[in-house]
Amino acid sequence: MIEIEGVGLSHHGTTILHDVALTLPKGELIALIGPNGAGKSSLLSLVARLQPLQRGRIAVDGLPVDRTPGRDLARVLTVMRQDTGFAGRLSVRELVGFGRFPHGRGRLTDGDRALIDEALALFDLTALADRDLMTLSGGQRQRAFVAMAFCQGTDYLLLDEPLNNLDMMYARQMMRLLREMVEQRGRTVVIVLHDINYAAAYADRIVALKDGRIVAHGSPDDILTVDLLERLYGYRMQVHRIDGQLLVRHHD
């Protein structure tokens, strides 16, 4: 369970998050949606202790994120940021292998190697395993970073726009993999999404953020309504149901 209570954040006098309170259950795929600048990345980075907590309280599985040693937290929770921005000389296999760092401090066991191979295969990276990260395309690099997060084996994964740069095939594959991790391995995935149709199709729960506040929180059916989407994004979209599946037509 992720418990967020009274969390506020401000930078240089501008308030970015206003008193956010949110409880997310374990074992679900949770989509965080909202317009650019809503505060999604900021909220995620506070949960993942990437920036110091200014106000409020956040606990993951009962561990307060601002007081638990980083090493212990890294076995429970991991995060992938929106801009992974690393361009050093590193092979895909090495990067994915870093996911095992919290467990063995850099020494890989046979079990670790099996896990790395599994992650490479799952994310379709086996053929690229020995390539330099710098030589990959944006989408390939993105998959390598998610594979590293997967390899870390934490119960909680926070992913900030992991579908960035992915084509339709890989975006679908990524969402199905995440879905499978939730259903078969009982993991909890919090994912920032911009294409709400992916949220509609794969999420158990949607949290909508705007101007640093939680606007709505509920099942896809509750959240993806014409009125609520207008409140979030400022224009009217068409919400259809095709073969039982919600579909938002957000382009003209």
């Binding site: 980075s45 993942a48 202790r49 990437l50 040693p69 980083g70 090493r71 212990d72 937290l73 890294a74 076995r75 991991t78 995060v79 992938m80 940021r81 992974t84 921005g85 690393f86 050093g88 870093f98 996911g99 760092f101 919290p102 970073f145 997060a149 870390q152």
Partner: peptide, 12 residues
């Protein structure tokens, strides 16, 4: 890997 990724991997 930089501050964010290193923190995610448990580096203080």
């Amino acid at each position: 890997l930089g501050p964010a990724a290193a923190t995610a991997l448990g580096i203080d």
